[in-house]
């Protein structure tokens, strides 16, 4: 444990200012998400029409919306939805995708062919269109939007893990495992998967931002969270009807932007640490 802490500390010391700042922003958002009921100054759903469209002030740090709800409190509660979705969607998709992908890569042959062609079909449309169609079919709601995002992300992880497993299968340590009479399942679970996992984890971190943005887009288009849920995309969408009260649309979008920017930076840094051979260059 001590050694791990030491590594963590070294990584921290070597990281750039931007990376430290992004990490801090991310931790901040996670904290306000977790402690939303304590941190939020007001009830995110409490209406007070008398104070509608108040500009940012000391009482309402980010102003109020068209029903007089405190935007800051809504952004804080929105962090829960977005961050949780950003965590759940890649996790579930990776769980199913890696299971399918590793079987596909390990077994090969007809199974592989069928699974990969199925993945091709799911991946051939631009990444917002298919979730849109799924949500359209199931009915617009936050739950259905999440389900749609999980479905369209499964093939991505399936393909990724399939490639890794297929390559790893050819290595001599697998041959060694076979030689001492290990079962296929054991080789796959104990020896192949642990080797493939770092690519998957990096991909998952990099996907958090994309998932948060896509979910916000769906909600923005009216296909995700429904009012009065304090979801960032939905809030932006309501706010765009009122140009004069610019703070309404700007703040929730800014939150999405800050979170996905920080995740991109932290994810890149993580990639460099976990996959030192794939460095993109540019890091000294």
């Amino acid at each position: 444990m001590n050694k791990r802490l030491g590594t963590l500390f070294r990584v921290f010391r070597r990281s750039t200012f931007l990376e430290k700042a992004s990490g801090a922003i991310l931790v901040l958002f996670v904290l306000i998400g977790v402690f939303a009921p304590i941190v939020a100054p007001k009830d995110p759903l409490a209406l007070d029409v008398i104070v509608r469209f108040r500009p940012p002030s000391r009482e309402f740090l980010l102003g109020t919306d068209y029903l007089g709800r405190d935007i800051l409190s809504r952004v804080i509660f929105g962090a829960r939805i977005s961050l949780l979705s950003g965590f759940i969607v890649p996790s579930v998709a990776a769980l199913i995708g890696v299971a399918l992908g590793s079987v596909s890569g390990f077994v090969g042959g007809g199974t592989d062919e069928v699974l990969m062609r199925a993945a091709d079909v799911l991946l051939c449309l631009p990444d917002l269109i298919f979730p849109m169609v799924i949500v359209g079919a199931l009915g617009p709601s936050l739950g259905n939007a999440l389900l749609a995002l999980i479905i369209v992300n499964i093939p991505i992880y399936a393909r990724l893990s399939r490639g890794d497993i297929k390559n790893l299968k050819q290595t001599s340590f697998v041959e060694a495992c076979r030689a001492i009479g290990m079962s296929n399942v054991r080789v796959l679970i104990r020896h192949l998967l642990p080797n493939a996992i770092s690519t998957i984890v990096v991909r998952m971190t990099l996907d958090i931002g994309r998932v948060i943005r896509t979910l916000a887009m769906l909600s923005f288009l009216g296909l995700g969270a429904q009012p009065p849920t304090p979801e960032w995309g939905l809030m932006t969408s309501m706010g765009r009807n009122y140009f004069r009260y610019w703070w309404y649309a700007v703040s929730p979008g800014l939150a999405i932007f800050l979170v996905s920017f920080s995740i991109a930076i932290v994810g890149d840094a993580l990639n460099d640490i976990l996959n030192p051979f794939q460095r993109q260059g540019g890091r000294g």
Binding site: G209, A216, F220, G233, T236, A249, G253, L254, F257, F261
Partner: peptide, 11 residues
């Protein structure tokens, strides 16, 4: 790439 498209459009 981090700014959500709808947000930059509205800004």
């Amino acid at each position: 790439s981090s700014a959500p498209v709808f947000w930059s459009a509205i800004v």
